[in-house]
């Protein structure tokens, strides 16, 4: 009876696991072949990877996506962190107002966020999309609220008396903030930054409504490419998918090793 139960459990979990990973793994396998469609196995080849890393169009698109993600995430982190600190020390009503407004982009559909920013900046105020301003602002709107949300709990857990002690010992408010508050909220700031990067990398809707016509992020590029019929580009994107998959696996493994180490240290103490 117990064994049968366990078999069911393993079956369900592996079904969901395979559903999530099989397409990516199949694509990874075919990215190392010369075939243009899945199902027909032809010779082994690294052509797709060569195209991916040498075609100027593809390289530009990948670099552009990364530059955008890190720029937007940096701005998001500065704004969101300052916002969280300000909100934490403000009167209850103001702080509640900030937190409520902060929830809007979090809950809103990305289509509506992207479209509304385009309407305000591009249609109503006439800012040109070619300045990249609407695109960067759009991605900061996506990221900053999550920085705010990851910093605020750290401020609440913080021991407030250390800040007061620093002031009593002669530190200026700025020094106290930098040397006392910042270290205590740093983990929240960093995870907010990482989150902003991933949100920007994964975004399609804000980019499509605000980006310059000549600029593409990975998402907008891939969406266009799947509609087109250029086989070399299509299969080069399989290679890109495989590269990103391995990068994500490495990052996750690294994070796990780090937490495992920390847990190990904790156990010793």
């Amino acid at each position: 009876m117990r064994k049968k139960n366990n078999a069911w459990k393993i079956l369900i979990v592996s079904f969901v696991f395979l559903f999530l990973y099989l397409p990516i793994l199949i694509l990874a396998f075919y990215s190392f072949t010369t075939s243009a469609n899945i199902g027909t196995v032809q010779g082994f080849s690294l052509d797709n990877y060569r195209t991916l890393f040498t075609s100027p169009e593809l390289v530009q698109m990948i670099v552009g996506t990364l530059v955008l993600a890190f720029t937007a995430a940096t701005l998001s982190t500065i704004l969101g962190t300052l916002g969280a600190i300000g909100s934490f020390y403000s009167k209850k009503n103001l702080s509640r107002l900030m937190s409520t407004t902060n929830q809007i982009p979090v809950i809103n559909a990305d289509v509506v966020t992207g479209f509304s920013i385009c309407i305000l900046l591009v249609v109503a105020l006439g800012v040109s999309k070619d300045t990249y301003i609407p695109l960067v602002i759009g991605h900061v709107v996506l990221g900053a609220p999550f920085v705010y949300l990851s910093v605020l709990p750290k401020l609440m857990q913080m021991d407030g008396s250390i800040y007061e002690a620093a002031l009593d010992l002669g530190a200026t408010p700025f020094t106290a903030l930098r040397k006392v508050v910042l270290p205590q909220i740093l983990s929240g700031v960093l995870s907010g930054f990482a989150l902003s990067v991933t949100l920007s990398l994964d975004d399609y809707f804000v980019a499509v409504y605000t980006k310059p016509a000549t600029f593409d992020t990975i998402s907008t590029y891939v969406v266009n490419a799947t509609k087109g019929s250029q086989t070399t580009i299509k299969t080069a994107l399989w290679a890109l998918s495989t590269v990103i998959f391995f990068v994500v696996v490495l990052v996750v493994l690294g994070m796990n090793l780090r937490t495992a180490k920390e847990e190990g240290k904790g156990a010793e103490v």
Binding site: I24, D202, S219, V223, T226, I244, F245, V248
Partner: peptide
């Protein structure tokens, strides 16, 4: 964390 457009392509 893997770009959705690439996953949907797969």
């Amino acid at each position: 964390w893997i770009n959705f457009s690439l996953r949907i392509t797969a």
